[in-house]
Design a binder for these strands. Structure first.
Length: 411
DNA sequence: CGTCCACGTCTAC
DNA sequence: TAGACCTGGACGG
């Protein structure tokens, strides 16, 4: 499940597993991979990792021998080499005994130990990639999690960029400005602020200050709120949530990224909107599914009918989302949570254990109306069958077959 | 069995 | 803004 948090957890995994491990020999690539060879071989080297947004960089560092003679044999590396990885839809790292290599391990780093172990880049779908001898992809913005200040500045200083013409849910996937946000994060972030996904991004962001008044807060247990923040109403803004929401996932730790136990139940419990039973979903202009609650917003793709106005419970203020101020302060998180719980339908069996390595949210039929035409169009929208007027028509109690494994707000 | 769907980029009409 | 790139799990018949 690779979005920013998973990439970062992957780097932590590599650093933890490879701490003290000496690797040796060449870096090997699977036969089937179309990614570049990694021209690196060394009799003793170490591996460390860092992450930035949706990229992970491995650094292979040759261990210098103590011998005064630093005779580097021909072909043996003596300088560190960086490899930058993109995880695609299914990439992750594993550190396993040589005889337990994953079927889809595509780049392999062998340890020097006797029962040899291997750090491998596993990527079932092979949408992932790696590039040796490069640094972070230049056209990607600062990391939403670990370069918050420059991330924020990068967005707010480029609001005139046409990239911000579009609806917020689609702009959030633009890695030039939101490096690390992916499909589940955009849904979770917008949900927290009750922001309709198809409101123009610029309109929402224009009102934000370049200085984050929450900057010095302990966001998690955020007991003390700065005076400035209090004046603002005490609510983190959209850009701040682009930072804190992903960090929540990082803090779930192994519950999210644990190739060993393959247990993602903690993560699924964390999700409040994405793939959650009771939420609405439609395809955005690029055919990606956006999950949300409430109004879709004015820039909703044509042909995807606006969802039936749910019988929004009492206090769903009818927001006028042309007014940024209003949007910025729409209903509080706690309010939302409460309301959601109320509307939640079925409950997840608490003993449910997700048999991982599978992709999240792949359970079916949560949103389509039973007999609705709901255009398929997977990643590649099948040619002629564009979403016709249908995909939207989300719930209304009826559908939402409370199938067994569907996600929902349990607890 | 077949269809739908998936946490993401890329490039080419 | 369509496809293309891939594999495989969940469902439906």
């Amino acid at each position: 499940m690779p979005e920013g948090p998973e990439l970062h957890l992957a780097s932590l995994y590599v650093n933890r597993m490879c701490d003290g491990v000496v690797f040796a020999g060449p870096v090997r690539k699977s036969e089937v991979s179309k990614n570049p060879d990694v021209p690196f071989t060394c009799e003793a080297y170490r591996i460390t990792a860092t992450s930035r947004g949706k990229e992970v960089k491995l650094t292979l560092t040759p261990i210098k021998s103590d011998d005064s003679k630093q005779t580097v044999k021909a072909g043996q590396a003596d300088q560190p080499v960086d490899i930058v990885f993109h995880f695609g839809m299914s990439g992750y790292f594993r550190f396993t005994p040589e005889d337990e290599l994953h079927k889809h391990a595509h780049l392999l780093f062998y340890s020097k130990e006797k029962p040899c172990r291997v750090l491998s880049f596993v990527d079932t779908r092979r949408f992932g990639s790696w590039h040796p001898n490069v640094s972070w992809q230049p056209n990607r913005g600062p990391c939403i999690m670990f370069e918050y200040k420059s991330f924020r500045e990068n967005v707010l200083s480029h609001l005139s960029d046409r990239a911000f013409d579009g609806p917020i849910c689609e702009v959030l996937l633009n890695q030039k400005y939101f490096n690390g946000i992916g499909n589940y994060l955009r849904a979770e972030i917008l949900f927290r602020l009750n922001i309709p996904p198809f409101v123009q991004a610029r309109t929402l962001l224009e009102g934000l200050e370049s200085e984050d008044v929450f900057e010095n807060e302990r966001s998690t247990t955020g007991m003390k709120t700065s005076d400035k923040a209090k004046k603002k109403g005490g609510k983190p803004d959209l850009l701040r949530l682009c930072h804190t929401v992903p960090l929540e996932v990082v803090n779930l730790g192994g519950k999210v990224y644990d190739p060993e136990t393959a247990d993602y139940s903690g993560f699924e419990t964390w999700l409040q909107c994405y793939s959650v039973d009771g939420m609405k979903s439609i395809q955005d202009h690029k055919g990606r599914t956006i999950w949300f609650k409430g109004h879709p917003g004015p820039m909703v793709p044509k042909g995807s009918r606006s969802p039936k106005a749910k019988k929004r419970s009492k206090k769903e203020e009818d927001n006028d989302y042309t007014d940024k101020k209003k949007v910025a302060q729409s209903c509080s998180e706690t309010t939302i949570k409460k309301r959601i719980k109320q509307e939640t339908v079925t409950k997840t069996p608490k003993n449910y254990k997700d048999p991982r390595p599978k992709e999240i949210g792949s359970k079916r039929g949560k949103t389509e109306k039973a007999g609705e035409v709901s255009t398929p169009q997977k990643e590649k929208k099948s040619t002629a069958r564009r979403r016709k007027s249908s995909s939207a028509e989300p719930l209304e109690g009826s559908q939402r077959k409370s199938g067994r494994v569907t996600r929902q707000n349990s607890k």
